[in-house]
Design a protein around this nucleic acid. Sequence first.
DNA 1: GGAAAACTTGACTAAATGGTCAAATTACAC
DNA 2: GTGTAATTTGACCATTTAGTCAAGTTTTCC
Lengths: 211, 211
Amino acid sequence: MLDKGVPAPKPTRIQAAKRAQILKAALAVFSIAGYRAATLDRIAEEAGLSKASLLYYFAGKEAVYVAVLEDTLAFWLEPLAALDPDGDPLEEIGRYITTKLEMSKKRPAASRLFANEILAGAPAIGRFLEGPLKDLVDRQTAVISGWIDEGRLAPVDPRHLLMMIWAVTQHYADFDTQVQAVLGPGAARKRFSVARETVLSVLLEGLKPRG
Amino acid sequence: MLDKGVPAPKPTRIQAAKRAQILKAALAVFSIAGYRAATLDRIAEEAGLSKASLLYYFAGKEAVYVAVLEDTLAFWLEPLAALDPDGDPLEEIGRYITTKLEMSKKRPAASRLFANEILAGAPAIGRFLEGPLKDLVDRQTAVISGWIDEGRLAPVDPRHLLMMIWAVTQHYADFDTQVQAVLGPGAARKRFSVARETVLSVLLEGLKPRG
DNA sequence: GGAAAACTTGACTAAATGGTCAAATTACAC
DNA sequence: GTGTAATTTGACCATTTAGTCAAGTTTTCC
């Protein structure tokens, strides 16, 4: 997005490797601390190089941040694009919920990174939200609306349905501290499997076409 | 909690007024920026006094932050404590959801303040989560479990049910930027009323006792 | 093996920011 | 009104941190 100068010189093997290394470290640090509290020194340490060296690969703190966001966005939205219009509605939505919960479990840093960014008012990805994200949501809500029109799903607002699913699934990544505190040390271990059962049970039952 | 020295001298009328004024400004600033990005200069400006003056009323940045959190916590949890064991389960839960959504609409700063704090790992209120909050949740999940045992509610894990409700309702405060971007300028105006309909419809239907 | 390019970093600068303090101003009790 | 306590703040200090740079080291390519 805002990488190289004009003619985009080919990146060396070392550049690719180091940039990936830095992005991994940056995700870890930004997702825990947020943009402002994260420091380049901390990211450099996590990536195993000096701050000056880090700044040889990225133009500045903001450039690192934007790169991490872009690097993670596509991955995070992938499952939504995978909704199959020809599949069974409840199965498709159930699979989407399961996948999103699995992602919250395995890649909580990605979810927290976005949570921090959106909470701060989405200064870096505001355009993305209004553009590509809205487009994807428009497309997939059309699929859901189709299912509703065919009477295979309860009639609810498809956009807000998606938001409910995002809210519930990402909650287990973003607010894990609270989840674990409230569940207590015993139940915290199984939190993701019980969450899956509960969420699937309530949402799928609530979405069944009404007699 | 960590206010005065030993004998707790009586606060003047001016002190009470100024502290309230500062807390209001601090909520606005902390909730948007998070702890680290918020500056005392910004809070002082918002409160209409100098930074030095602000520090006459509070021991330091952290003291202001803790005071704001404490000031907001009880208010935020109030509706949960109001669940009536003798009421109709679906009505009680529906009222809880409606109240929480209403709070997200009217006091989004409070929700965002907690979201930032929990995302950062709850450094300031970790003890509160494990203590008073967990106790309240334990008490109210017992109420819900009672309803389930009586067959008046679908059998779901009551703790995760509460988390679903928190997730969905607070989402509309914490992620409002995303919500508005995805809904588009037209639908954003009515977002809270459509959210209420959708959330109530899906969750209450999903919680009806199963035949 | 040598030169050029790519890479690395310690030392530095400038800006932001939490916090201190002494001096000035205001509020209040009598 | 006068004196004391409460309040206010400009000026200042110390620390943190993003970003620069020149001087070195390593890699690459012939």
